[in-house]
Design a protein around this nucleic acid. Structure first.
Lengths: 325, 325
DNA sequence: TTGTAGGCGTTATCAC
DNA sequence: GTGATAACGCCTACAA
């Protein structure tokens, strides 16, 4: 593989001139410029990007940490990130963690090792102290509400989103309300739990522990939920379901086993997945795609300018009433 | 940021010794080893991975080229790749191309620049010559049947898979058979087209151009298909749908607008998506996850050993008869 | 407008 | 066992 020195020799110039030509700097005579490009052609030269990274101390790579890529929620965020990354000429390094703390820490270590210039954290298990410890190693953007903590963050106000949906149900006369969620940990989930407590209390209803369904991430989980629901003695009359995939699973399986929705059970999903639209599922639309895009731009802006206008950005969620609630 | 020389000074040894300790080589006295680790601790040292890459000439990064990550088909492959990559300590660099030839070539250029050690191509628009031109720059694995061409490849025999499903329909008495596909280009699609021609001819039926629905990738496309179907003068009685997402879109919208499936229209999907299972859609199960895993292992084996046992691997597809055909 | 030389942080090859 | 020192390939003052 030819290198910059070979080019210099071939073109009869210095490596500095070669570098200038390669990077499009001015102040190079047309003659030498031409000679360099000819040498590039002749020697079939390509830049070694590793060397560029080392010399510049930057990689134009951003890492993305997420639990699983094979999930509509995360792949939507990823799509948003990807689009912006492409636009600004950045590469994306994927860290699929499966919510395994070891792997999450590995991703942070990689930031420290300068494998990438910044990191977008779509979701995580490890607690904030871990991120705080790596803040000096490059910009880290979290996709969740971080309150007073000094992190870059772009997030949906899940407390408000939940309140919105719960109030709607209460207004419709529901008193026995439950919800389905992926995990109980993490700020997003805790915001939802708080909203659940608050709104139900405000409506004079006692929240019930057994009406909270955990581990709801995929379509199949919805199937499980409705089957559990059927088996319950005291059934909720309405369910908030934090993923449209799961909501779809509930609705479809309900249809199969003869549970009438919304008559027997009202369902409000989240995301506004195309599947929810097709099934007429009432849902809280969440701007995942934009969220990914904003996350990237936050990092990018910091990397390119070194200063911050906003550290945190909030995105809106809105209820789309359809047929299931 | 402390570097290896700072460590050497701090520990009172040479950089060579530091490197040996850091990389766990033998022949270092216990005493010096300890001194080095203490220096690491004291200076809060972390390896600069860029420098390692440059010095070693390898990155332990594999690139993944795919059109869109936000699609169950590709994210399933990605999940399979990801799992294996993790297992062997490799990182994954994502190239989302949107089937844009420019971006596909950009990914290949990056391989050439040594940004990664190898490349997995999940799907592409550019023709094979392009890949051939970059073969010297690192292992490239294609996820499609490459025939006699000398590429690494792991693939599903889409010709056979299509034949299998078509014969089933013919046997059931169908004569007016159509199909839905993402794009017409690419070897996978061409294999399907060939199977379509062959099986229908063999059954004494004339294939019809207007019974082939292009641009079928997402759930929403299924909705469009069934609406087109309804508007047709001569309607096919059965449709092969190369994505369960699209098949689900068809089935759900059919249900909405009162088209009975399978009585009026039989549907066979592909993938064996959980959604197809939940909807009782007859489908051809495709092992995407394994495909991704195998693709990675092919690259990995080549990178680690430098020799090849198999250049190509075929994976099976099997028809799962459920309710829609 | 051009060239020299030092630096980026490791690894790896020699001698000792 | 250990330490110099030369790669790895590029960028970038600084000097001319």
């Amino acid at each position: 593989m030819a290198n910059i020195r070979d080019l210099a020799k071939e073109a009869g110039v210095s490596v500095a001139t070669v570098s200038r030509v390669l990077n499009g700097y001015p102040y190079v005579s047309e003659e030498k410029r031409k000679a360099v490009w000819e040498a590039v052609e002749k020697l079939n030269y390509t830049k070694n990007i590793q060397a560029v990274h080392l010399a510049k101390g930057r990689t134009a790579i951003v890492g993305v940490m997420l639990p699983y890529i094979h999930h509509p929620y995360f792949s939507a965020i990823m799509e948003g990130i990807s689009k912006e990354a492409l636009r600004y000429g950045y590469q994306l390094l994927l860290f699929q963690t499966n919510y395994d703390v070891e792997r999450e820490l590995e991703a942070l270590e990689r930031l420290r090792m300068r494998q990438m210039d910044g990191l977008i954290v779509c979701s995580h298990e490890v607690d904030w102290e871990a991120f705080a410890a790596y803040q000096g190693d490059g910009p880290i953007v979290l996709c969740e509400h971080v309150g007073e903590h000094d992190f870059f963050a772009v997030y949906i106000d899940h407390y408000q989103a939940f309140v919105q949906a719960l109030r709607y149900l209460v207004k419709k006369g529901h008193r026995r309300i439950g919800y389905c969620i992926g995990r109980m940990t993490g700020p997003n989930s805790q915001a939802r739990a708080a909203a659940y407590q608050d709104v139900l209390r405000e409506a004079g209803v006692i929240p019930r522990r057994q009406w909270i369904f955990e581990g709801c991430l995929f379509l199949e989980d919805g199937k499980r939920v409705i089957e559990q629901w059927v088996a319950m003695e005291e059934r909720p009359s309405a369910l908030l379901v934090t993923s449209d995939q799961v909501a779809a699973g509930i609705v479809l399986q309900a249809q199969r086993i003869g549970v009438r929705i919304p008559e027997e059970l009202s369902i409000i999903g989240f995301d506004n997945d195309p599947l929810a639209e097709l099934l007429g599922i009432t849902t809280v639309a969440l701007p995942h795609f934009q969220l990914g895009g904003k996350a990237f731009r936050l990092i990018h802006h910091w990397l390119e300018t070194g200063n911050v206008t906003r550290k945190q950005e909030e995105l809106p969620a809105r209820l789309l009433v359809r047929d299931t609630a």
